[in-house]
């Protein structure tokens, strides 16, 4: 079937006025798709006071930046965000709309897709053009299988994980930033307040090293040892789900299919068995190190380095040896 329309990327901002790294990655991916289909690439940014982010995005290779800048879009309210962008999608339906598989992407794209009756593929770990079609690759059954899917509708939508696309080299000649009129209906949802609990000094998703603990840590004390190791390595602490459920680690630490997806240079898994749900969140790490007392734990099969042993004995000497060698 012949389908028309451009590739559109929905960008987000990080820390106020910079484009989020996922959005820059999607500029690379979007460009690949646009070139593969012989069409153009637009990027849409929503928010309040996003002028700097819009100008920054314009340097990463899109053909146009559409800026929906309005005070009502300061904080994410799905009703307002949805209405703001729907008009744009209706007046020129894109061939594909890509967003990050982020908190915002996971909440907003389904709303857009069902409003417009479009096929949406979430949590993509790969997107490619083949035979004039856009194919989306995503884990199913908790990562026990990979599905290749496509939308049957003229517009396809997708949420894409971090580190799937590559950030293009910024250009000295940015494209045009076009402001778009924003509709502001009365929202049905009312945001009453926000509470930030994670230390955003070193967000898990961006840490070069992640030191994670599992059920075998046995309690909060174990996690203070992991924090010590993480800070020595300039990294962040993660966890599998049981420690989060037990309250040994904050919910913001959870790595896995229902937690965060991380791809650090180094991932250290301590007392984690390697369930598929956990692996879905970290199997793309550069190097994986496992410490586990069970020689048959599956985590060793997916690791580059391993020590079979009780972490209570292995970890202190490991951390101490790293500290000593760091001084040299």
């Amino acid at each position: 079937m012949e389908r028309s329309g451009k590739i559109m990327v929905l960008a987000e901002t990080a820390k106020g006025d910079r484009p989020a790294s996922i959005s820059l990655e999607l500029m690379g991916l979007g460009r690949e798709l646009a070139d593969g289909l012989g069409t153009s690439l637009s990027v849409v940014i929503l928010g309040s006071g996003v002028g700097d982010a819009a100008r920054e995005l314009a340097r990463y290779g899109p053909d146009e930046v559409l800026s929906l800048d309005h005070p009502s879009l300061g904080a994410y309210n799905p009703d307002l965000y949805k209405e703001a962008i729907l008009g744009l999608l209706k007046s020129s339906p894109p061939r594909a709309l890509l967003a990050g598989h982020t908190s915002l992407g996971q909440d907003l794209l389904p709303r857009l897709a069902f409003s417009l009756d479009c096929g949406l593929v979430t949590d993509c770990v790969g997107v490619k053009v083949e035979g004039g079609e856009i194919l989306f690759i995503r884990p199913v059954f908790g990562g026990n299988a990979l599905a290749v899917q496509k939308a049957t509708t003229d517009t396809a939508m997708a949420t894409v994980r971090a580190r799937v696309g590559e950030v293009p080299a910024p250009s000295a000649t940015p494209c045009e930033v076009r402001p778009v009129e924003v509709e502001t209906p009365a929202p049905r949802l009312e945001i009453k307040g926000r509470e930030i609990i994670e230390d955003r000094e070193c967000p898990l998703e961006e840490a070069p090293v992640v030191v994670s603990g599992g059920r075998g840590m046995g309690g909060e004390e174990g996690f203070s040892q992991l924090r010590e190791l993480a800070s020595l390595l300039g990294g962040a602490v993660g966890a599998s789900r049981p420690p989060v459920d037990s309250g040994w680690a904050p919910t913001t630490c959870q790595v896995g299919i229902t937690g965060k997806v991380v791809a650090p240079d180094l991932y250290i898994a301590v007392a984690i068995s390697g369930s598929t749900q956990h692996l879905s969140g970290m199997s793309e790490a550069g190097k994986i190190v496992a410490i586990n007392k069970d020689p048959d734990a599956y985590i060793f099969k997916v690791s580059d380095y391993g020590v079979v042993g009780d972490w209570k004995q292995v970890l202190p000497s490991f951390t101490a040896a790293l500290r000593e060698t760091a001084r040299d």
């Binding site: 897709a113 009756d117 479009c118 096929g119 949406l120 593929v121 194919l135 884990p139 199913v140 990562g143 026990n144 299988a145 990979l146 599905a147 290749v148 899917q149 496509k150 939308a151 049957t152 509708t153 692996l279 199997s283 099969k301 997916v302």
Partner: peptide
């Protein structure tokens, strides 16, 4: 609205 065109076993080891 979405079709699965292929299904594969992942390789992680």
């Amino acid at each position: 609205r979405v079709e699965t065109v292929a299904l594969k076993a992942p390789s992680r080891e």
